[in-house]
Design a protein around this nucleic acid. Structure first.
Lengths: 338, 338
DNA sequence: TTGAAAGCGTTACCAG
DNA sequence: CTGGTAACGCTTTCAA
């Protein structure tokens, strides 16, 4: 059913090489007559060239892979979308994979992408699979890590300034007079959780407020889990007057608890979230958040990986750090601003 | 840098055919000794087989393509994720593309996926590009349409029961006593908008409430646009007492307006949205929505396409219709239920 | 149980 | 300007 270049050549009455040259506009010129015939034959046969055969020959796939933990996370979805757009403009296509934070699944995708010979890889790593990553790098795979580094893996990396973002958020809560500030954190075994915890601690320290482990809970992906963890924090006696929540997924649990318990924000509970999500603006009350420009993150990651592919850069691993910005809204500041 | 099967064969001291057989577990048996040597050599060389060469030979890609309008739409993201999971379990991988509702972009992705020889295609169509779709089908491409049909294109199709969902939603608003119900709709030129409009109209008719074109606005993707359209509806004199909003993206504009104008839901304005999104549950007030099981939609679409590929089904185009369910919450019913 | 070899659909080199 | 042809890395048939 599928036509090949030979069919086109036959119908056009030229050689298959000529067909190639008109399709690729080069590398050598083709007479106008031949070109016309070829184009006509392509049209007739509905011929579509095979990327597969082409890749086998040229050893280029024009594909880059992106592994993230979960496309349902609005922040990650935005990164994926931004990366797709940026890459499309450079004639690359993007294959997006969800690791769900599971090393097993990450491993599977890494293998798969490797077998597909992606030319570059952008990875939000689980932290495991170091040995495969190392052998891939050694084999010449261009890799850019995002959001987290991986111990022992030297690669370009685009990080978020977690410590700074968390510091500002907690400082803001402290400035409002809160002294009993809970932290619902990502696993502190991973860099983002680590950084956010450090920012939290430093802010407390700078304000002379003692740190209490009781006020810190850690968890991750599922909605049920975050709901339960938030509940644990709110059950403390006395309860925290403010919560700093380390991610939008975790925040769902908190907002849910606030609703169920009838807590009014910010009076009964002030809430500040790391990761700004579109609906926070019109939430009731609107939600104070630490925002990170996902587009910028995607841009740096894409830039790093494309520069490696093009050979525009081939030196030491680079590090980019995306700054955060605190968006003060009603969930902490009250109806100060709409 | 990248090893080939021949390198492995050489190192293992066997033929390249043998290497193939151990990698693929067949189609013929390999002696334990040879197998062991091959495995060892693979390990040594960090060999990773090339999907590309394999595909060229076998004419199978084990890839299916999914084109949706926008991965940032939580409903679509959920479909993409569900499809990925389902396909992964059957050893297929999924390539997700965003058309942004633009025929141009859709065309580009269609061509790209065709060149990549995807074995199946799941498409949320813009409605354009019919001729390419037809030639692809004619060329044997397995296609499943989701959410909308395309005029003149005969393919398996998984639709949402828009008319029924909209009918129930509006009926619910009517039952609460609303008579001036605005509709913020998707473009009615597309099937979903069409169906939702029809459900809206039928509900009014059944209740003996006259239809007023004034109360209907149409628009689509961008946040700014939906905000403006919602504003238009709310500026009517007298304003509608209730709004039925045809999608979660459109609803952002409405919720935003409600906040800015200080409208209290449901007293000042009752709101019901088509598409249930996770945060509606803990929104303040929680948002009444028509929910559609995206997982089920994805499942049917994947099933259709895989059955075509396997040859398990090869008859007439099939149609599946996913039912909707009204989730009554506070934005219409008041604090009746938490 | 094994190896040799013929393709798969391209690209690009080498002669004309 | 053009056609023939040798790869690219793999699978699988055919003979051994």
């Amino acid at each position: 059913m599928a036509m090949t270049r030979d069919d086109v050549a036959k119908l056009a009455g030229v050689s298959s090489a000529t067909v190639s040259y008109v399709i690729n506009n080069g590398p050598r010129p083709v007479s106008e007559g031949a070109r016309r015939k070829v184009l006509w034959a392509i049209e007739q046969l509905n011929y579509s060239p095979s990327t597969i055969a082409r890749s086998l020959k040229t050893k280029r796939t024009h594909t880059i892979g992106l592994i993230i933990s979960d496309i349902l996370d609005p922040f990650l979805a935005f990164i994926a979308k931004s990366a797709e757009d940026l890459l499309l403009a450079q004639e690359y296509s993007l294959t997006v994979c969800n690791s769900r934070e599971l090393p097993e699944r990450e491993l599977g995708w890494l293998r798969m992408l490797r077998q597909r010979r992606v030319e570059g890889l952008i990875l939000l790593p689980t932290g495991a699979n170091q040995s495969l990553l190392l052998t891939m790098i050694e084999a010449g795979q261009h890799l850019t890590l995002i959001d987290r580094c991986v111990e022992g893996v030297e690669a370009d990396c685009v990080l978020i300034d977690n410590e700074q973002g968390a510091y500002e958020a907690v400082q803001h809560l402290l400035a409002l007079g809160h002294r009993r500030i809970g932290l619902l954190n990502l696993p502190s075994s991973l860099a983002p959780g680590q950084g956010r915890l450090e920012g939290y601690q430093r802010a407390l320290r700078d304000a002379g407020v003692p740190f209490s482990g009781q006020l810190v809970q850690e968890g991750s992906l599922t909605a049920e889990e975050s709901y339960a963890l938030a509940g644990g924090l709110l059950d403390l006696r006395p309860p925290p007057t403010a919560l700093f929540v380390a991610s939008n997924r975790l925040a769902e649990g908190v907002l849910c608890q606030a609703k169920v318990r009838g807590l009014r924000m910010p009076d009964d509970l002030a809430v500040c979230v790391f990761d700004d999500v579109s609906y926070y603006r019109f939430f009731e009350p609107s939600v104070t958040a630490v925002s990170v420009d996902g587009g910028e993150l995607a841009e740096r990651a894409v830039q790093f990986v494309i520069e490696r592919i093009d050979g525009a850069y081939s030196g030491e691993p680079r590090l980019a750090r995306i700054p955060c910005q605190l968006q003060v809204r009603e969930s902490t500041a009250g109806r100060i601003q709409a």
